[in-house]
Simulated scan of single mutants.
Amino acid sequence: MNRRNIVKSLALAGILASVGACAQTDDGDDIVDIAASNPDFSTLVTAVKAAGLVDTLKGPGPFTVFAPTNAAFAALPEGTVETLLKPENKDQLTSILTYHVVPGAVTSDQILGTQMDVATVQGSTVNVDGTGGKYGAAVRVNDANVTSADIMATNGVIHVIDKVLLP
């Protein structure tokens, strides 16, 4: 990654963290509560529990979570989810899940019209493209489409995606 991209990522992370901190409320559910209350996220919730990330994602944040649906997990090669959920694969599962999390609360209005690489909690970057294509979704994260945006939680925001992101 060149210096310009590093500076842009750091600047964006700082801006997003400060904007996200201002957007938080004290009432309502956190990221884990919202995911656990939605049956479309049952596989994600099971994975978060297996990785030991519940307390982190219930923490103050703020976080932006690109949340894959059950259908997104089901689209992985057969046996992948079951293998990742085994205790001996906890590190790999944690790496994949934290690749779906960005520090700060980033809402769709902050993304639309821009394209950038953003650092994840896992340490790698994801490409967030809010420029919308002629035939694509309005917002993409790597090769996943955001199918539902701006699900606000007390400690961040959830954007539903149709693919599991792999670092």
Rank of each mutant, 00 (worst) to 15 (best):
A119T: 13
V102E: 00
N89P: 12
V106I: 15
N89Y: 05
V102D: 01
S148L: 15
K86F: 01
V139L: 04
T107G: 03
E88C: 07
T147L: 08
Q115S: 15
N142M: 08
A105F: 05
V118N: 01
V106H: 04
V139I: 15
G79T: 08
S108T: 12
Q115T: 14
V146L: 03
Q110P: 04
D109R: 09
G104T: 13
K90I: 12
L112V: 15
Q122N: 13
M116T: 10
G136T: 15
S124C: 04
H100A: 05
D109K: 09
A144R: 06
V81N: 04
D91Y: 04
Q110F: 09
N127R: 15
K90F: 02
Y135D: 10
L85H: 02
K134T: 12
L97C: 04
V118P: 09
Q110A: 15
R140F: 00
D117N: 12
T80E: 07
V128D: 03
V81K: 10
M116Q: 13
V121D: 00
N142H: 04
E88R: 09
V139S: 03
A137K: 11
L97Y: 03
I96E: 03
D91G: 02
V141T: 05
Q92D: 12
G79Q: 10
T94A: 13
A105N: 05
D143E: 13
T147F: 04
L85M: 10
V102N: 01
V102L: 10
T120Q: 06
V126Y: 02
E88N: 07
D143K: 12
V141M: 02
G132E: 10
G136S: 15
T125R: 09
G130M: 09
Q92P: 04
S95I: 01
I111A: 09
G104F: 02
A119P: 08
T98A: 07
D129R: 12
G123F: 05
V106Q: 00
V141E: 01
T80G: 08
G104Q: 11
Q110T: 07
P103S: 14
D109G: 03
V102G: 01
P87E: 10
L112M: 13
Q92A: 14
D129K: 09
S108P: 12
A138R: 11
N89A: 08
Y99D: 01
T131Y: 02
L112N: 06
E88S: 12
Q122S: 11
P103T: 11
P103A: 14
V126K: 05
A137F: 01
P87G: 03
I96K: 00
V141S: 02
V128S: 02
I96R: 02
G123C: 09
Q115E: 14
N142I: 04
T83C: 01
Q115N: 14
D109L: 07
V121A: 08
A144I: 08
T107R: 06
V101I: 15
Y135C: 01
A138Q: 15
N127P: 07
Q92H: 00
K86Q: 13
V106S: 13
S124G: 13
A137P: 14
S124W: 00
I96Y: 05
E82P: 14
V106R: 09
L112A: 08
Q115R: 15
G133L: 11
A119Y: 03
S124P: 02
A105R: 13
Q92R: 10
D109I: 02
T131Q: 14
D129L: 11
T83M: 09
D109A: 04
E88L: 06
V118R: 03
T107D: 00
G104P: 12
N142V: 03
P103I: 00
